[in-house]
Simulated assay, not measured.
Amino acid sequence: MLVRLIVGLGNPGPKYAGTRHNAGFWFVERVAERLGVDLRAERKFHGAIGRYRDAGLDLHLLCPDTYMNHSGRAVAALARFHRIPPEAILVAHDEIDLPAGVVRLKRGGGHGGHNGLRDIIPALGSRDFARLRIGVGHPGSSDQVIAYVLHAPGRSELTAIDSAIDAAAAQAPALAAGDWDRAQQQLHTRE
């Protein structure tokens, strides 16, 4: 299936801009930059949106401004308005269970403890959307996770994350064209 909507998860505002939790925002911003798309605030969709149309592709981009725990409101509003089924949505998010610099594509599944995904599932009424899991590493102890994701990565981690995001953003046209297997092969074998 074609990807018609790419959502980047994060928290709005300068306080969170450089934190690990905003890796999804970083990805969508990189895709927008590569495709020459401006992201503009749109109140009715609760976030910054952009749209890319070229050579038969029609791809929406979204960075919700609702904070992570309420991401579903923005995703559902845009998906309903443009009649985009869950199977045509890719949600990019930070993933503590992957090392910094590793990215993985996944179709469907649960929330895995991620509050953004936890909110999107009931808002869409489905778990069938795809995920781009952007590795940010793990703090080593579960009681440190919240503080860890709400802080900026170190220089070497940031370099690794940035490289992974760049590689993933290069695959956005393939995903929008429905070439999931090629995009997955490129990303899963890049290490």
Rank of each mutant, 00 (worst) to 15 (best):
L2V: 15
R4D: 14
L9E: 08
L9G: 07
G13A: 12
P14F: 01
A17Y: 10
T19F: 08
R20A: 07
A23R: 14
W26L: 06
E33I: 00
R34Y: 05
L35F: 07
V37D: 11
V37C: 07
D38Q: 12
R40Y: 00
A41W: 06
I49K: 11
R51M: 07
Y52H: 15
A55W: 04
D58L: 15
D58H: 02
L62E: 00
P64A: 03
M68I: 00
N69C: 08
H70T: 08
R73Y: 04
V75P: 01
L78Y: 03
F81I: 05
H82L: 11
I84N: 10
A88Y: 08
A92F: 02
A92C: 04
H93Y: 01
E95D: 15
E95P: 04
I96A: 04
I96P: 07
L98G: 15
P99F: 05
R107S: 09
G110S: 05
R118P: 05
D119V: 05
I120W: 01
I121S: 02
A123F: 06
L124H: 12
D128G: 12
L132E: 02
G135N: 03
V136A: 11
G137A: 11
H138Y: 14
S142H: 08
D143A: 06
Y148C: 12
V149Y: 15
A152G: 09
P153Y: 02
L158W: 13
S163C: 10
S163Q: 15
A168P: 09
A170C: 10
P173K: 11
G178Y: 05
D179I: 09
D181K: 08
Q185D: 15
T189Y: 13
R190D: 15
